[in-house]
């Protein structure tokens, strides 16, 4: 499902963010990507989610070669995945309903289906009662649940989360991780970049550790 083969990413400097990364992830897995700040987690995340291209090597995600994605092919690739950010990336002056419905609107889904699906996914994240609220009226945990709902609404095969609990207190972080586990249990591959090693230990999932741009260990 995800294959990294001999992937290098070098930024001007030169700064070698990723060095000879080789990795295979199968459908339905729950993976934690861990490592200290500056280890290359975000670069890895960007390549995985099609927000950047490798300097050399091949990154294959859901059958698409990310290394060769053209600008016009990017939207179609992103429609297949769900992405969650640490800073939520919600549009402040749109309601929760409008924010969550965006991926389906972009795909040209019918209004009736959008309404049904948004209410369904909001129910999954326990936010049905907040559908008319604006992001600023929600707590951090609720905002992240809205972002998760948006990432899930179009039934992606792969859910990628970059530090999804980075801005949340431990209780809310646990709540979000439980939600991601539920999503994974339904068959979606979940890839989470985090530096919260305590939580990773507790969850006992597959872990890819990266240090100085090199995969150190796969646990």
């Amino acid at each position: 499902m995800i294959t990294f083969s001999h992937v290098y990413k070098t930024y001007p400097g030169p700064n070698h963010a990723l060095v000879d990364i080789n990795l295979n992830i199968n459908r339905g897995e729950f993976i934690f990507l861990t490592g200290p700040s500056g280890a290359g987690k975000t670069t890895f995340f960007k390549l995985l989610s099609g927000f950047d291209k490798p300097t050399s090597g091949q990154v294959e995600v859901l059958g698409d070669n990310v290394s060769k994605l053209t600008s016009s092919a990017i939207p179609n690739f992103r429609k297949k995945i769900g992405v969650i950010y640490q800073d939520f990336k919600l549009i402040d002056d749109k309601t929760v309903f409008e924010n969550v419905s965006l991926p389906l609107k972009v795909q040209g889904a019918k209004d009736k289906y959008i309404t049904e699906r948004v209410m369904d996914v909001l129910d999954q994240v326990s936010l049905t009662h907040k559908s008319k609220a604006h992001p600023m009226q929600l707590s951090g945990g609720e905002q992240q649940r809205v972002a998760i709902a948006r990432a899930l609404i179009h039934h992606p095969s792969l859910l990628i989360a970059d530090e999804p609990t980075g801005n949340l207190d431990p209780a809310l972080a646990e709540e979000i991780m439980t939600l991601l586990e539920k999503v994974n249990a339904q068959g979606t591959t979940v890839f989470v970049a985090t530096h919260d090693l305590e939580m990773v230990k507790r969850k006992n999932k597959k872990q890819v550790e990266i240090k100085k741009g090199i995969i150190n260990e796969i646990l």
Partner: peptide
């Protein structure tokens, strides 16, 4: 700008 970023994030095409 933020809206444009989010639209790109959810896979909106250029013309969209």
């Amino acid at each position: 700008r933020k809206e444009i970023e989010v639209l790109e994030l959810v896979g909106a095409s250029r013309s969209y």
